[in-house]
Design a protein around this nucleic acid. Structure first.
Lengths: 363, 363
DNA sequence: AATTTTTCCGTGTGCGCACACGGCATATTG
DNA sequence: CAATATGCCGTGTGCGCACACGGAAAAATT
């Protein structure tokens, strides 16, 4: 590694031009003859020039970079507080670069509300947009708007196949289903029944839920030694305790050997609440996400495993990705899968801490 | 959040002094009257001053910050390639700050060699030191040296209780033992026997191995429903296949229901290699770390679980911690526990990727 | 009281980069 | 051929901070 950093001036001296000319080449701002441009580019390669990002950000410090963040309202679902906090943390740590964030929240079951937020966000004339595109059709409006105004866009939580975005940050839904199968399987015996439970309202419009289901079933189909029968349920009324309890009771009557559940989103706690205490201790449940009600049940042993979707990091990385691209001119991969953390009572502590004391210098 | 960032100049104008005076207060360099110092400090709090780190690093850019890195030779043990790579990656990403790293490797079973590296490192006059203090007694020499020369020190992998260092970065050894117990327990039935295996040469001098053992045993002692008997083995000759095979054979003769193993470091693969194929498929093994030979056996199902010690991140965070402290004046916690990632075949992929495509911005 | 020392504070420069501005050539036009 | 336009390039300034330097005032010494 080179001992001394190469600067614009070094390149300029080597080629015999001024720093201004080198700068024009670096930023492809034209007004440089082809010959000199070639010589400069050649020298940059040869000497291994890399811009000093600190200096660059200093020189750019006058103009703010505003990022519009479109996320569901966290008051409707505690899950969405996590990406929000990640965004805030990231924003805090890139404030030196004059990065500003503005939130546009929407009601997570109302596509129209999402569209409204999209409009507001676009009208605010942002330098970039970070969004969780929960609704497939409505997300296309957002995609169009960004394309027309040439605004870079990052998706978190939900990807849209073929969408022309800067990057998707989230998990591999299919594989998380497979993993859930594997984890649930630890607690099941040959001949047991397991059930996949969707506690959501837009399942048919939510690709990632379908992917999880596919992965889950594929895992059990691939088993050789055991035979586990899989059932599926979609419950849109997950917010009505009476209904849920009635439903749960019926399931155990119909399926005596029903011993495992996989809840495909962060609402596993709602399933637990629908069961009698005795049943809670008997069944094995695998769910998602480190939100408060789930954590409590994990500690009590009523939820066996949680898979961490790293929602906090989705927000955090989302902001950093945009900053990297727009301010640092770094290349960004189209898909950034976050790990599928397996959480049990014995290791949960360290995942909770992590979001608080993250490194501050990030690279 | 304030729209416009507060600068030294703002403070200076407000108080009615020059930026130089404010700067002296910021850096506690003295030569400022008590009254003006108070007024400046007051103004800084009131206006919410935070230094522009980019500008600070620019202004400091002339003097390199050299970090000496004292790690075991990775050619003796693939595990140690991981922190090394983490260090290199971090070094690469803070090169803008004129940070330089120099490696001083030592033979991991020879305390004398460690001391030699310590001497060399100290003589090189580094701005900070990152070390893995494998040997308790010898590490104290390092501690003394750093204290005398006032060199900030970060430990990874192994902590030393009460040591006056900037920070320890690694895992909670005790808890990783508990977690290993929990994971192994999935595959054990009432009456089974399990064995904790130390494949190492300095066990009595290695606190973290003892902590893991304690955690592991505590877990099984706390079980209510099952009764699992725990055995312990220390094998210093883990590098002699003939010896290992002979040893393994004897164990199964003596303990017919021996079905689970917990290998307390990254050498689980050496245990597997000591067994017949049929036995390999029957026993349940929990080990540590995502190194090549382990990964292969994990994919084959011959290792059930790996606990990720996040060795790569230990190196990575180690460097960032020092940079944060010394160049950014950030406060650093004495202990930075990394999560205990549970790795199975179904989620291993994302942990391997993560080290390659980490975020890139600097703060 | 004159000098020296000490205390305290302002000024100036540079870090590497971005970009506006202006100037010198050469090309274009009447 | 003069006048204007255009392409190319150098110069200068500022971003916010760190720190060396020097000067003025106050304190201590002779």
């Amino acid at each position: 590694m080179p001992d001394q950093r190469i600067t614009l001036k070094d390149i300029a001296q080597r080629v015999g031009v001024s720093t201004g000319t080198v700068d024009r080449v670096v930023h492809k701002r034209g007004h440089v003859s082809a010959e000199i441009r070639d010589r400069i580019e050649h020298a940059m390669k040869e000497m291994g020039y890399a811009p000093n990002l600190a200096a660059r950000s200093l020189a750019n410090n006058n103009k703010p970079f505003r990022i519009a963040v479109i996320l569901p309202d966290y008051r409707q679902d505690p899950y969405w507080a996590q990406p929000k906090e990640g965004v805030e943390r990231a924003a805090e740590s890139v404030r030196h670069y004059n990065v500003q964030t503005e939130f546009f929240s929407f009601s997570m079951f109302q596509p129209r509300d999402f569209l409204e937020s999209v409009d507001k966000a676009l009208e605010s004339g942002p330098g970039a947009i970070l969004a969780a595109p929960l609704f497939l059709e409505e997300a296309k409006i957002l995609l169009n708007g960004c394309q027309q105004q040439n605004i870079p866009l990052v998706f978190i939580n939900t990807d849209i196949e073929g969408a022309d975005i800067l990057s998707y940050i989230g998990q591999d839904s299919y594989q998380s289903g497979v993993l859930a199968g594997r984890l649930l399987n630890f607690g099941l015996s040959d001949g047991d029944h397991a059930m996949l439970v969707n506690l959501d309202k837009e399942v048919s419009n939510a690709r990632h839920l379908q992917d999880k289901e596919r992965g889950f079933k594929d895992y059990f189909n691939g088993l050789e030694k055991k035979s586990i029968q899989i059932h599926t349920a979609v419950l849109e009324n997950f917010d009505e305790p009476a209904f849920m309890q009635e439903w749960a009771k019926r399931q155990f009557e119909h399926i005596p050997r029903l011993t495992g559940f996989f809840v495909t989103n962060s609402r596993a706690y709602k399933l637990v609440e629908a069961m009698d205490t005795a049943v809670q201790d008997r069944v094995k449940i695998v769910g998602f996400d480190l939100i408060e009600p789930n954590l409590k049940l994990l500690a009590q042993g009523k939820i066996r495993f949680l898979i961490n979707q790293n929602a906090w990091h989705q927000g955090y990385l989302g902001i950093l990705t945009l900053v990297n691209k727009m301010l640092m001119s770094k290349e960004i991969p189209r898909t950034q899968y976050l790990p599928l953390d397996i959480i049990v009572k014995e290791n949960v502590e360290y995942y909770l801490k992590r979001t608080l004391e993250l490194p501050m210098v990030i690279v």
